[in-house]
Nucleic acid binder design. Structure first.
Lengths: 192, 192
DNA sequence: CGGATCGTTGATCAACTTCAACGGTCGTGG
DNA sequence: CCACGACCGTTGAAGTTGATCAACGATCCG
């Protein structure tokens, strides 16, 4: 069963029995979503926290000029959500869309609260997950502040070559803050 | 006692008695640090998580060309640390420096582990703190991706006018990813 | 076959950086 | 108490990165 991917992930941080996991999974909903399908959209008043079992999604927003910007990708074993909306129980500004056919687990805010009351040790798990996510942000800011856009692209491509090849280029461009045309020129210039 | 600032902060997220807090504070060290003093430096093998009681600090790194970049400011009631180093128990790449005379509480990684074992409900507190921190990052990325550098500066100045006036401009520039000269030109152009 | 959808290319242009020089202010030591 | 230097901000000229626009190509899928 695919849901076990979450079991293994939690077990990397806290010890958990199979019986506990069986109960825990009851707080989640399974979502199977096709390529291009939308999981969450701006204006949604009740948002969920999503865990990726298989596939790939991205979170984006639409700016004041109508341009879409990807703020985040999520692959297998990653959590993704609008954490401000989730913390405050407010509507979200973001969209989450599947880049390919994906299987996810979602947990609503009220269910997460119930889960954490029932299994306090899950607080440790989420604490670790969010701490790591925040740490990744600090690393990302290091790149943004110290490299030119060309270098940012090349380093990203070299760090995640398979990912860069499996995702539309305009999404990579959007995520890195470059124009799609410029990425195209960088590719040609840097044949490899 | 200044330490109570932390008590009040924790109480915003989880209920805590004064007696519990008295025990909790024992896991922390008090640090009083003068303007320009350095709390943490690149290469340090044991890093702490810091809570600001009074004052202001910033976290920065030195890039491959020797240029310093501020990735984060922290004011009263904020936590600051290199969370990758803290999670993995690895040396850090960052520096934390006081911008003005500051009072902080610091907790080492082993002490934090002991604290969390002794008071599991502190997991909830840190989970909330990191979740909010991560959410702030998502918001920051929205700005970076959708606005020009001029707009980023103006919006930052309008959102935190007192802060912008109390911190050296080259630090604001560094944090926002602009050259110090350009900030100077924006100020002149945008007299207000 | 025909239309989306995604990537490419070249010309033009603006935003922003870099460099070099100068000015003001503050604090410290003589 | 003054003078000097460190530190921070300013200014203008010149240069570069990377965006924008418009047009075209390629591929995929119905």
């Amino acid at each position: 069963m695919r849901n076990n991917i979450l079991f293994q992930h939690i077990n990397q941080f806290i010890p958990l029995t199979e019986n506990e996991f069986t109960e825990i999974i009851g707080y989640f909903e399974r979502e199977d979503i096709p390529k291009k399908g939308i999981l969450m959209r701006a204006g949604d008043r009740f948002v969920n926290d999503y865990f990726i079992l298989t596939g790939c999604v991205h979170m984006y927003f639409v700016d004041h000029q109508g341009v879409e910007h990807t703020v985040q990708f999520a692959l297998k074993n990653w959590w993704i959500a609008d954490y401000i909306a989730l913390q405050r129980g407010q509507p979200t500004d973001f969209y989450i869309q599947a880049i390919e056919n994906s299987e996810l687990l979602s947990i609503s805010l009220p269910n997460r609260e119930k889960l954490l009351l029932r299994f306090p040790k899950m607080e440790s798990y989420f604490r670790a997950v969010y701490q790591i996510a925040y740490g990744s942000y600090q690393t990302r800011m290091k790149y943004i502040l110290s490299y030119s856009k060309e270098e940012i692209y090349l380093r990203f491509r070299d760090s995640f070559p398979e990912f860069v090849n499996s995702v539309p280029q305009y999404l990579i461009a959007s995520y890195l803050g470059l124009s799609a045309e410029y990425v195209s020129k960088l590719r040609r210039k840097n044949i490899s």
